[in-house]
Nucleic acid binder design. Structure first.
Length: 448
RNA sequence: GUGGGUAUAGCUCAGCUGGUUAGAGCACCGGAUUGUGGUUCCGGGGGUCGAGGGUUCGAACCCCUUUACCCACCCCA
């Protein structure tokens, strides 16, 4: 028989059991937190008709999309969750209640070169709020609060949400006579933190024929410490700019009421975001200890979610967490908690008698009590039986042999301390529940 | 898509100017220790050296082709 070498495609993450459990816990925290803000879950197909996903046409997405045919059907794998959302909202417009708040955690696919922390299949965790015709600015202030809650609940502390408004940038571009190159300039200033002001100035004046004075003015305003104050001299020159300044001020004020501490957000005029559908507030979230990894959560306000599917104006605001990348980076930085929840069970029962029935009854009893229980039924040597618990990180082992059965007790060993107790099944269950309770509150992420 | 690099055991890697049966650590299996693991000691299994072709008396090593992977850029989560 010809055997194939087992392999996993580059850019596709495949985890071992313990890290997979951590990943699932992260997702649970996200679902819980999003639920607190009234978002409902949504799931859409991973595959869509190509004409739906490529309705917008052209650009990078078309080059990166996984596209194939099956019979006569021209199909594509979704490359984000926003386009499927647009389709969904347009399709079910009449049945949805607006503002529509949904969260979606799902895999997306991008056929680009994989790199460390850069995947071809990865999870995005998105939340969006879609309005019917209008959507109040307050929603744009609530989003950072959700970001703050989410990361806090995961156990992260040292992060910062950076906020800007595209109207300010576009307004400034207009004042400086750069409206024609707006998209290129936008993408270039977004690289400020990565490549520095000198390189950006070089690119602007070189590649995109921005006059040197305009580039200098732009950079000095964007990089000023007191952002809103630096914009003051431009007030009244451009309606869009004025509106942007007003919106950004409102958002910043309301964010505090929504519970985002000053320490965790910052107005930063250099946040631009590459995607061109953002029209107002934009967000980026950085790990303060690891700014080099870039944004772990980004998004913003857009005016027309579903313009390619319907003529209904559907403004919205949303963000996306790159879960796979976040998980990868946290693991690499050793910020993930290795606690007993990464074990598949709390207790392993080792029957020492030929008759397994008492052990089965005990397992059933423990599961009813809420203990994650494994029953070792394989006929192996003792060393291998207890080694099973050891390798899986299961903290407690229960021995059930002739002696214990005769005495009506169970022997319970704590593998971490080596201590062993001998008492009734009920007493043992109570003991374990008490011992394990505090660990349920340990967050996924452990900083420091 | 553009440019650069790497490919040897399950994993991380060593392997001298080409020279006999290709090594280490970790992991795995067994024993010391058949109702007490994780530590220690002893032993063991495991590799068509990414694939195909060429040069040579002889190739993991040199040459060609090819595939995969990694890094940077583009773009992005």
């Amino acid at each position: 028989m010809e055997r194939q070498k087992p392999r996993t495609l580059s850019g596709f993450m495949e985890l071992l059991p313990a890290p997979q459990l951590q990943m699932e816990r992260m997702m649970e925290v996200l679902r819980e937190t999003y639920g607190l803000y009234g978002f409902t879950p949504l799931d859409t197909p991973a595959i869509e008709a190509s004409e739906v996903l490529l309705a917008k046409g052209g650009g990078e997405t078309e080059k990166q999309i996984y596209r194939f045919t099956k019979g006569d059907a021209d199909l594509s794998l979704r490359f984000d969750l926003t386009v499927p959302l647009a389709k969904y909202v347009a399709l079910h417009y009449g049945e949805l209640t607006f503002p529509f708040r949904r969260y979606q955690i799902g895999k997306v696919y991008r056929g680009e070169r994989a790199q460390r922390g850069r995947f071809r299949e990865f999870y995005q965790a998105d939340i969006d709020i879609i309005g019917d015709g209008k959507l109040d600015i307050l929603n744009e202030a609530e989003i950072p609060a959700i970001i703050y809650q989410t990361f806090s609940r995961l156990g992260l502390q040292r992060f910062q949400i950076r906020v800007n408004n595209r109207k300010i940038l576009n307004g400034l571009f207009a004042v400086l006579g750069l409206s024609e190159q707006a998209s290129d300039v936008m993408r270039t200033i977004d690289k400020l933190e990565k490549i520095g002001a000198d390189k950006v100035a070089e690119l602007l004046t070189g590649e995109f024929s921005v006059p040197p004075e305009a580039a200098a003015t732009l950079l000095s305003v964007l990089q000023a410490d007191a952002s809103l104050a630096a914009l003051a001299p431009f007030a009244g020159q451009n309606a869009l700019l004025d509106q942007g300044i007003d919106e950004l001020s409102q958002v910043a004020n309301a964010m505090t009421a929504f519970g985002v501490p000053q320490s965790h957000f910052k107005i930063d005029l250099t946040i631009a975001r590459g995607l061109d559908y953002y029209t107002g507030t934009v967000y980026e979230t950085l790990l303060l200890e690891h700014p080099e990894i870039g944004s772990i959560c980004s998004g913003g306000r857009y005016d027309n979610l579903a313009e390619y599917y319907t003529d209904k104006p559907l403004p919205g605001v949303g963000i996306s967490i790159g879960l796979t990348r976040l998980f990868y980076v946290l693991g690499e930085q050793q910020l993930l908690n290795a606690d007993r929840l990464n074990a598949p069970a709390d207790v392993l029962i080792l029957p020492m008698t030929a008759d397994l029935n008492p052990a089965i009854a005990l397992a059933t009893k423990m599961r009813s009590a809420g203990l994650r229980t494994l029953l070792y039924s394989e006929d192996k040597k003792f060393k291998q039986k207890i080694g099973y618990a050891d390798k899986l990180g299961i903290p407690y082992v229960l021995f059930l042999g002739e002696d214990e059965l005769a005495a009506g007790i169970v022997a319970c060993k704590d593998l971490r301390t080596g201590e062993q107790t001998k008492q009734s099944a009920d007493e043992t269950i109570a003991l374990l529940l008490k011992a394990l309770a505090p660990q349920r509150d340990i967050p996924v992420i452990r900083e420091n």
